[in-house]
Amino acid sequence: MTPRLEIEYCTQCRWLLRAAWTAQELLTTFATDLGEVALIPGIGGVFEVRLDGETLWSRKAEGGFPEIPLLKRMVRDRIAPDRDLGHSDKKA
């Protein structure tokens, strides 16, 4: 079974473009490793990234949005731990 990634975003805050851009970045990097990426409309300032039901990032818990290189490392560590992410592997 291939992994399912979900990005829940706040429609009231108009974060669809941010969610779509995040999805595009992850799909570009993990084109053959992810089975599905779902954009889920929400309300109340939500922006959460979940992989197979496990929350990788919550804007409310973390106090902001994820940096894409960090998010790529988090996804990679769970679905393709041997993959080299190139410049995204360099710590900020």
Rank of each mutant, 00 (worst) to 15 (best):
A80C: 09
G45L: 04
G53H: 09
V75K: 11
A61T: 14
D33G: 08
D77L: 06
E25D: 14
D89V: 00
A61D: 14
G64H: 05
R83F: 01
E25W: 04
T22Q: 07
E36V: 15
F30H: 12
G45T: 04
K90Y: 11
T11A: 08
E54G: 03
L85A: 02
V37L: 08
I43K: 14
E36P: 15
W57M: 05
G45I: 06
W21N: 13
L56Q: 07
L34F: 01
A92K: 15
T32G: 05
T2G: 12
G63C: 02
Q12T: 07
D52E: 09
T55N: 08
R78Y: 02
Q24W: 10
L34V: 09
F65T: 10
R18C: 14
D89P: 00
P69K: 04
E62T: 12
I43E: 12
Q12K: 06
P81V: 02
C10N: 07
I7W: 02
I79L: 06
W57G: 08
E48S: 12
T28F: 12
C10T: 08
I68K: 01
R73E: 00
R78G: 07
G53M: 03
W57T: 08
P81G: 05
V37D: 10
E48G: 11
W21S: 15
F65C: 04
W21V: 15
T2I: 06
L5Q: 04
A92G: 13
E6C: 13
D33V: 01
P3Q: 15
G64K: 11
G42Q: 07
I40Q: 13
I43M: 13
E67Y: 01
I68A: 04
I43G: 09
A31T: 14
P3H: 15
L34P: 01
L34E: 09
F30A: 05
T11K: 07
K72D: 04
C10W: 07
R4A: 08
A31Q: 13
L51R: 05
P66S: 04
E8I: 11
D82R: 09
L26E: 10
